[in-house]
């Protein structure tokens, strides 16, 4: 692992900085010298065919996978390759999985309460008491993700789309500086998709968001800078119109 911190990096104030990141599994290069920068407050969309390395990239940013080489910096100063998932989450990076992952045997309320950005140690949680501020905050988040009416229901009883929203709500409760969202509208109805785009844009006002999505309509709705990945590295970057007219992108992704 090459983790010598370049001096120049101190001056960049990007929220996420990946350079020359490679990782391989049993000879298969999942990421091939990937470089990628996200600025503070930016909402970025990532597209790319299956196996392009989108999920692997998220795994590396969130500490689930260690890169073979390359550097990953958060906030211009924190080396993410040295941290594990819990550290990275506490630094302020939230992640939504491709498959909605919520605590099914907890109520919607408890799901949000667990996600709330409070002390997360054993004893802090053991002696935790719900304060009025926390209660207000939870109610506010429930309102944002339109779940107030279902707060006492078990998460297991929610529909697929509702679970996606609950998970986004949990990420909000986490108060991350950077939010990674993997295919948020998969399996949603058109109406839900449009609403999700609105929600994400709203969220992006106060933090950086990276969205991985296949749904081109949804990406168009977002109307932000798009990065296209293929075979583990960046193929093209720019506005949706610029990227979708790139011949390489058409050949690798859209054309298929």
């Amino acid at each position: 692992m090459t983790t010598v911190k370049p001096a120049a990096l101190k001056t960049t104030n990007s929220i996420l900085y990946l350079d020359g990141v490679s990782v391989s599994f049993d000879g298969f290069k999942a990421l091939n010298s990937l470089s990628f920068v996200v600025e503070p407050g930016e909402l970025r969309a990532i597209i790319g065919p299956n196996g392009a390395g989108k999920t692997t990239m998220m795994d590396i940013i969130t500490g689930k996978t260690r890169p073979d080489e390359g550097i990953v910096y958060f906030n211009g100063e924190v080396d993410l390759t040295q941290k594990d998932e819990a550290d990275i989450a506490q630094l302020g990076i939230g992640r939504k999985f491709q498959k909605p992952t919520v605590f099914e045997s907890h109520t919607v309320w408890d799901n949000i309460e667990l996600a709330l950005n409070r002390k997360r140690g054993v004893f802090a949680t053991l002696f935790y008491k719900l304060t009025p501020e926390d209660k207000a905050r939870i109610e506010e988040i429930l309102e944002t993700v339109r779940m107030t009416a279902r707060k006492d229901d078990l998460a297991a009883n929610l529909s697929h789309g509702q679970k996606q929203w609950l998970e986004i709500g949990m990420l909000l409760a986490q108060e991350p500086k950077l939010l990674l969202v993997d295919e948020p509208v998969a399996g949603m109805t058109d109406a839900e998709t449009t609403e999700t785009a609105v929600l994400l844009k709203e969220i992006a006002k106060t933090r950086s968001v990276v969205v991985v999505e296949h749904d081109m309509g949804f990406i168009r709705d977002l109307g932000v800078k798009v990065t296209c990945l293929a075979e583990g590295s960046v193929l093209a970057e720019g506005s949706i119109d610029f990227v979708s007219s790139d011949p390489k992108v058409i050949e690798n992704y859209l054309g298929r």
């Binding site: 969130t62 689930k64 998932e85 819990a86 989450a89 506490q90 939230g94 992640r95 999985f97 992952t101 919520v102 605590f103 099914e104 045997s105 907890h106 408890d110 309460e113 667990l114 996600a115 950005n117 997360r120 054993v122 949680t125 053991l126 002696f127 935790y128 949990m170 986490q174």
Partner: peptide, 22 residues
Amino acid sequence: SKYGKVLVGVRDAESRTRFLGY
């Protein structure tokens, strides 16, 4: 306690708990 709820969270979705920072 909240800790107990985290435990159940670990049981049902360990990686989610981890990514929430626990």
